[in-house]
Design a protein around this nucleic acid. Structure first.
Lengths: 193, 193
DNA sequence: TTGTTAAACGGAGTGACTCTCCGCATATAT
DNA sequence: ATATATGCGGAGAGTCACTCCGTTTAACAA
């Protein structure tokens, strides 16, 4: 019933190496825009058989999720740091801008995120929770300090941000995206009651 | 060089019928959530051969675009009407809410829009222009009346809206999306100079 | 070292899907 | 009624995701 520990053996070193290699190759391909790269090709570039790829990642989505989970986590980790360095509203703004930067640097690729089966949720439901937690805490602080209105759903802002990443195209989109961040912040301000 | 007119013959009636049938079937499937439906199946349901489908729509994306173009157009058409009925800012707000309604009614399906190859642009570059025109005019009016700030990019709002449609999941998302509309409007207001 | 064994590997094979090609059918115009 | 451009249909080629299972190898014990 409870989780038994069966540490019979140490995990095999070649297994871990291959797994990391696959992730590295996949990330390189995805960030290079080859979102639709065949999985055979990923395996080939990583110097492993297709069977090995599928043992580590049961399907395409699993691979994509694994590639981005680390990025998502590091984005989430930045939240408490920013919170410590800035006043609440500015921390929120800074984090949202960082979100945009991540997209700009192709560290997080929206098409890949959205391309997931069923479109939505699948990935954000699992990996996305860390982002939700991050923004929720930032907003809670800003609400507590009386800077932003209490009846704003954190998720809404995240959605808007994610939306921008979908349509990240054309020159100047990045500054345009940061302008949107300002709009969102301004729109979330508590009325000067 | 210029577009020659060669109206040798009237288009064949069966051709038009089949085309409409395909669109009807495809729309039904897409709105029912069967975004990944095989094209053979679409052809079968429409009672035509696969070859016929591919003559009318050279690839999957073309079909998706054709299905939604009408919806997109009607959404765009609503803009001037709303503009005539409401003061500028309210017209803008109403239109953005209408956008959300369309998504809610599954008349426009975000997963399908985003699932397009290459992720971005492909569809919005063509069909999306009508939406851009629509919101640009609404915003121009609101800027002219001094209600909203001049340095807001219309596309940004569209992006945010589209983003929300991606993550349209879970109960209450709709009201949450409309709240986002209000945030965006509030954030776009011109400073009471 | 050597033997044992569980863990991991590789890649041929399967089924599903997209898209092409081209001979056949039919609506339109004369 | 005849001619012909227009549209139809579906077999088949090419690609891809994912499975299966015989073979290899790293980890551990003796």
């Amino acid at each position: 019933m409870t989780d038994e520990k069966k540490p019979r053996r140490r995990p095999r070193s070649d297994g871990q190496r291959n797994r990391e290699n696959l992730l590295k190759v996949a990330k390189a391909a995805f960030t290079a825009g080859e979102v639709d790269i065949p999985l055979d090709e990923v395996a080939r570039r990583a110097g492993v058989g297709i069977g090995t790829l599928y043992r580590h990642f049961p399907n395409r989505d699993a691979l994509i999720e694994a590639v981005y989970r680390a990025e998502l986590d590091s984005l989430a980790d930045a939240a408490p740091i920013l919170a410590a360095q800035h006043p609440p509203v500015e921390a929120l703004r800074a984090w949202m801008r960082l979100f945009v930067d991540y997209i700009a640097a192709k560290l997080v690729i929206a098409p890949a995120l959205n391309g997931l089966a069923g479109g939505t949720g699948a990935l954000y439901a699992q990996s996305g929770t860390v982002l939700q937690d991050a923004i929720e805490k930032l907003m809670a602080a800003a609400v507590a300090s009386g800077d932003i209105s209490a009846d704003i759903e954190p998720v809404d802002l995240l959605r808007a941000l994610a939306g921008v990443s979908n349509y990240a195209a054309g020159p100047g989109w990045e500054t345009s995206a940061k302008r949107l961040v300002d709009i969102l912040i301004a729109g979330s301000r508590a009325p000067a009651s």
